[in-house]
């Protein structure tokens, strides 16, 4: 069961009804275990409060201050929010990030699903294909690949060298405001191997008898895909979608390297986290950057909540 599934179950299962004797035994075991649990969980608890919950609350406070790392923070009320409303770079950053997320996540998942479906049909050389297609998703987040992308899509890069063979003079893809974001979307789609492997595992769990029964009843491939594969795979599609969105909203390295830290040309690749980095760690406007961080958290939270709400209408759980 995935983390998302766990959260669903936790929400649904309350404490079961127990007999007094069972309760007594349970209480005894709990007393015995509690001290051990404290020891085993000690590092995690320190981490949870010290470098997760504490910082989350601290950044909420800093979001309402003018903190600049050198002087003590002053409470400034909603000044940072006001500033956001008039911040044109923030607008362009949100546009770039949302476009990137909304375009690249679905494309990546469709490609991943299509190839997983192809590989699941009992094809020879499965292990080879799977390895080759999976490898880019391990390398994709690295600086080296972002550097490579800069050169592949540069004015004199690989892509244009190919186009040149057909007499086409391509633009400097990474340097044009219209195409720079597109190169990053291509890079994200290129790393479809990870969701593909998850889809592949999910496809394997669908009992073959379902397909046999459907085939006996005269259902063709397309009908089988629509009525068996997609419904049974929908929890995994949902899982990949939720995690894909959360992860993609936080993309940083690719945009940083391809634009050499600027988010350019004309802020077209100014991912939210890159803008946050510029404000906080280059401009030392830590108060404003904290406000940005909370805006990001709220946006991701809203997207995730929307997803969970919508999942009622298309995700099929057979439990």
């Amino acid at each position: 069961m995935s983390a998302i599934g766990e959260l669903r179950t936790l929400r649904r299962t309350g404490r079961g009804r127990l007999s007094p004797a069972q309760k007594e035994a349970e209480a005894k075991e709990r007393r015995r275990d509690s001290r051990a649990a404290l020891v085993f969980l000690a590092p995690w608890l320190v981490g949870l409060f010290g470098i997760t919950v504490g910082p989350v609350l601290a950044s909420l406070y800093l979001a309402f201050t003018d903190y600049n790392l050198l002087q003590d923070p002053n409470f400034v009320g909603l000044e940072n929010v006001q500033r956001m409303l008039g911040d044109e770079r923030l607008g362009r950053s949100l546009a770039a990030t949302l476009t990137y997320v909304v375009v690249s996540v679905p494309i990546q998942l469709v490609v991943a699903l299509a190839l997983a479906y192809l590989l699941d049909r009992g094809i020879r050389g499965l292990a080879f294909y799977r390895s080759v297609l999976y490898l880019p998703s391990l390398l994709g987040a690295s600086v080296a690949i972002a550097v490579l992308w800069r050169l592949v899509f540069g004015g004199e890069g690989l892509v244009n060298a190919f186009l040149g063979l057909f007499g086409i003079t391509g633009p400097a893809w990474v340097a044009e405001p219209e195409t720079a974001l597109g190169t990053l979307i291509v890079l994200h789609v290129w790393t479809f191997g990870a969701p593909m492997v998850i889809f592949l595992a999910g496809l394997r769990q669908i009992p073959r008898q379902y397909y046999d029964a459907a085939a006996t009843d005269g259902a063709n491939r397309w009908q089988q895909l629509r009525s068996i594969t997609l419904p049974l795979l929908s929890p995994i599609i949902f899982f990949n979608l939720v995690l894909g969105l959360i992860g993609t909203f936080q993309s940083f390295t690719q945009a940083y390297i391809v634009s050499n830290g600027s988010g350019g040309p004309t802020d077209s690749t100014l991912f939210f986290s890159l803008y946050l980095y510029q404000e906080g760690f280059a401009g030392f406007r830590m108060g404003y950057a904290s406000a940005l961080a909370w805006l990001l958290l709220l946006i991701i939270g809203a997207f995730t909540a929307l997803n969970f709400w919508a999942s009622k209408y298309w995700v099929f759980y057979d439990d």
Binding site: A3, E6, L7, L10, L41, W44, L48, I51, T52, G54, P55, V56, A58, S59, L62, L69, L243, I246, F249, Q250, S273, L276, G280, F281, M286, A289, S290, L292, A293, W294, L296, L297, I300, T304
Partner: peptide
């Protein structure tokens, strides 16, 4: 509660932590 908190931290963006962590 602890388990749910642990699961939720998986999905927490690093950016909401990074500035206070840096200060710390």
């Amino acid at each position: 509660v602890a388990f749910a908190a642990m699961l939720l931290t998986i999905m927490l963006p690093v950016h909401v932590l990074i500035i206070p962590q840096y200060v710390l």
